[in-house]
């Protein structure tokens, strides 16, 4: 174990009470309580969960299933609602980057899955986020066949436009926006992708059909409506702001109006 070192940030151990959600697919779930001793404050939240699971396995019990992969805050796979907050209490970090020094000795920590109609629980803390993939499949791309791309510098893009597209493109698709929203809305996620692609010159040809198709799929797979609460922005680990929702609404409205006035009776509709 780690020895305390007076010259470095004090590394101490915590004894915790954990209330963790246990659920099988298609069945009702419930909290299970466990005591966990000797958690280093240097450990990440997921390492604390590993410790709990190792203990359960050694005792012949099933561990808690949870999603995780890169553990450096970029893949978007980890989830968990910690003490009622998606990704826990620290702003701007994913669960995997949340460290135990942010908790107190003796604290009770409640760990739940993302809770949203469009994210059904697969097991314990794991949910099905394939709705996000379906939204992207319906239009979250620029149609470019490998081999047919023009020279990269043929189209200059103003730095501020490119930077704004990058701000939106930083979304990791974790779903905290949906989990934090009382409506289970995916507007921040969809808005981020629409903003990223619709800002760029390469994205213009499909601008209208993209936004129409993505919004329709968003509704179809069960995400709720936006009522401008702003919880998504507050819980986004990547700092995506509500601006992308404004952008989405503006592009959507523009596309609907254009579709209405250009309607000639022939099928020329984007996706709505």
């Amino acid at each position: 174990m780690v020895k305390d070192n007076h010259s470095h940030s004090a590394d101490s151990v915590l004894n915790l009470r954990l209330r963790v959600w246990r659920q099988r697919r298609g069945q009702p779930g419930a909290f299970e309580e466990h005591a966990l001793q000797g958690v280093s404050t240097s450990a990440s939240f997921l390492e604390m969960m590993d410790m709990l699971n190792e203990k359960l396995v050694r005792d012949g019990k099933e561990p808690f299933a949870f999603d995780h992969d890169c553990r450096e805050g970029i893949c978007g796979m980890c989830s968990m609602t910690i003490n009622g907050m998606p990704h826990g209490p620290l702003p701007g970090v994913t669960t995997c980057q949340l460290h135990m020094r942010n908790f107190r000795d003796g604290e009770t920590i409640t760990v739940e899955p993302w809770r949203a109609r469009a994210f059904p629980v697969l097991r314990d803390l794991m949910v099905d986020r394939s709705g996000f993939d379906k939204v992207i499949q319906s239009g979250g791309f620029i149609s470019i066949r490998a081999g047919s791309a023009p020279e990269a510098n043929a189209t200059p893009i103003a730095k501020d436009v490119s930077d704004a597209a990058m701000d939106a493109a930083e979304c990791i698709g974790c779903g905290a926006c949906v989990a934090s929203c009382k409506n289970g809305s995916a507007m921040l996620f969809v808005g981020a992708k629409v903003t990223h692609l619709n800002l760029l010159p390469q994205g213009q040809p499909e601008r209208d059909r993209r936004v129409l198709a993505m919004v329709r799929t968003m509704d179809d797979v069960g995400f709720g409506n936006c009522t401008n609460q702003g919880e998504c922005q507050a819980h986004c680990p990547k700092g995506i702001t509500l601006d992308v929702i404004s952008h989405l609404n503006r592009d959507y409205l523009g596309a609907r109006v254009k579709a209405f006035f250009s309607s000639t009776g022939k099928a020329r509709r984007g996706g709505d």
């Binding site: 791309f141 620029i142 470019i144 490998a146 081999g147 047919s148 791309a149 023009p150 020279e151 990269a152 189209t155 200059p156 893009i157 103003a158 730095k159 490119s162 930077d163 597209a165 990058m166 493109a169 990223h196 692609l197 760029l200 390469q202 994205g203």
Partner: peptide, 14 residues
């Protein structure tokens, strides 16, 4: 690089 720019990858720009 051509392919990625055409896909909308927001590379750093001057």
């Amino acid at each position: 690089i051509d392919q990625c720019v055409a896909q909308g990858v927001p590379f750093a720009r001057e």
